[in-house]
Amino acid sequence: MKNELLTPAETAERIRAGAILSIAGPDALLATLPRGTWIGGTTVYMLTEDGGARIDDRLFVSTFESATGATIRHHSPDTLPALAQDRPEGVTLLLIPAFSDAHRRFALDGTTYDGLFDQPLAGWITGVPVEKIGTTAPAIFDGTTGTRHTEGAMALHVALPAGTTPSLDIVNIFTPSDDPATTFTFPETGFSARTATVNGKTVDLAAYLRAHAIDTRLPLVANYAGALINVSFEHVDAAGGGVSFYAPVIAGTEYRLATAQPDYAAAFAATLGDGGEGMLSCNCILNYLHGDMAGKKTGRFTGPVTFGEIAYILLNQTLVKLDLAA
């Protein structure tokens, strides 16, 4: 795996050479690329070896050098449950536009898709410049046809040489608090909640968050059999309309507010160490914004900054890392 920041002309040259690529970048640049074996997703935020940055004039290109083949498929929300069917042995990279129906349905139902856990499934939720949220739709691109989509999911199934054992994992810099006053369970599964149970009492969640001055830049953390999985707050409606999240909360699952993280970039750098070169990774726009990561280095784990991460399931405020050389 080779990760590079390339100009559109350099990227086009790579495509024409027949490389198998995943490309992240501005919508307008992705739209100029020639047809080939690539998928693309929109974002202008990147983590580079020089630090986090907004990059409007280049593309983040990941080249699957060891691939022996690739299959690219666009799934509508209705065909999404078949995404793990009939794919070559290797890994799958999945891109889904933020705020789309596919985004919502994958988050809610993805773990029930047949064969989902058979091999590594990594990916990310595509985004837009923050000033364009609500006015411009995030997009995904099918390089084989040059088609741009704002709905559905784009899957790049990468075939790898026999004997390769790729590994997929996550890095979560947040730890859950032990405070029962910030431990929540929810009555229903979904991207929003009006009530939650805290200390055995049902509370109006928005009012409770305000009354306790809870920092909603910190995620809620659930323990998935030893994996710490974040759900981030999207909006707290001051008018009593409830609370929305960037990933679904699961009914009956215990969520604990994360403890404060003084320096996001340093925490990632310390956790990740010197590894990362040659891995596919992505990190969350909320970490980039709340952690003020622009210009700060996070080690050698470079990649797009995204509106959600995928490692079998939808994640928030998490770094995903896919190692093909494992």
Binding site: T111, F117, S167, D169, Y224, A225, A227, Y312
Partner: peptide, 11 residues
């Protein structure tokens, strides 16, 4: 365990 096993068991 692998992330796949942990997420599946949780589900």
């Amino acid at each position: 365990a692998s992330l796949a096993s942990r997420v599946l068991l949780n589900r």
